[in-house]
């Protein structure tokens, strides 16, 4: 089976600053791949290159078999994306947002309507479907944004810190949605700060200063670093970081 994502020495340079420094990894189809790193490690930049939002400076990568330099628009047909910033339209209702994004991904009216109503049911938003998205609590917005990102059944979904700022219960519910998507065969590429979430992933990579320092299943990483939990593994690696937020 061809990998969902192939990445070889992918690099992004902003002037003198090397945000992403020759990272290499493969992601297998159906895998939940955790992309960890401290703030400023280069996670978002790497993800933006894979989504076709930003040109790499050098290196190679394919996403769903398409080249990130030349076939970005083909990649975009195959992926879903949920950015760090909440990016559904706050001044549209739940139903209108779903219709809009489903529509621009080319779902037919009939399919769109079925999926929309099913999604509203699954999320328990029946009473809120006609309300503006801006009026929903953050946790609900995040779950909605995720569901919209996988509405068109993409091969891969990219999630950039999807659970930032929400409570543990909502995060758990969010991960149930991720598992459900993975069960449908969608590859999940997710960045996170929460180490308990790292444990939910099939494999994780830890980025430090633009480079990937470690990449394996959580269990194997804990063994290798003689750590009790992922938190400890992360500390051991991220402590070496030279660059910081500021």
């Amino acid at each position: 089976m061809t990998p969902a994502i192939v990445c070889r020495n992918l690099t992004k340079q902003f002037g003198a600053f090397r945000a992403v420094d020759a990272i290499s990894f493969d992601v297998q189809p159906g895998e939940i791949f955790g992309f960890l790193g401290a703030n400023g490690a280069g996670k978002t930049t790497a993800m933006r290159m894979l989504c076709g939002l930003s040109y790499p400076t050098s290196g190679e990568a394919t996403v769903a078999g398409y080249d990130v330099y030349r076939e970005q628009e083909k990649i975009k047909r195959k992926i879903g994306y949920m950015s760090q910033k909440f990016s559904l339209y706050e001044n549209l209702t739940v139903r209108e947002n779903i219709t809009f994004f489903g529509g621009i991904y080319g779902l037919s009216d009939k399919v769109l309507k079925e999926k929309r109503e099913a999604m509203i049911g699954t999320l328990g938003l029946s009473n809120e479907a006609g309300k503006l998205v801006g009026s929903l609590p953050l946790g609900w917005k995040q779950k909605l944004a995720f569901s919209v990102a996988v509405l068109h059944d993409p091969a891969i979904v990219f999630l950039d810190e999807p659970t930032g700022g929400v409570d543990p219960i909502t995060r758990r519910q969010f991960w149930d949605l991720i598992y459900a998507a993975a069960d449908r065969g969608i590859t999940v590429f997710v960045t996170t700060h929460y180490m308990d979430e790292a444990e939910y992933c099939d494999r994780i990579s830890i980025m430090v200063d633009g480079r990937i320092e470690a990449l394996d299943a959580p269990r194997l990483l804990k063994e290798r670093y003689h750590a009790a939990d992922m938190q400890d593994v992360f500390y051991q690696l991220a402590r070496k970081a030279v660059r910081s937020d500021n």
Partner: peptide, 13 residues
């Protein structure tokens, strides 16, 4: 500014 354009740019539109 609000970031929705990125959500648009990542679609095949």
């Amino acid at each position: 500014e609000i970031g929705t354009i990125e959500q648009i740019n990542v679609t095949p539109i």
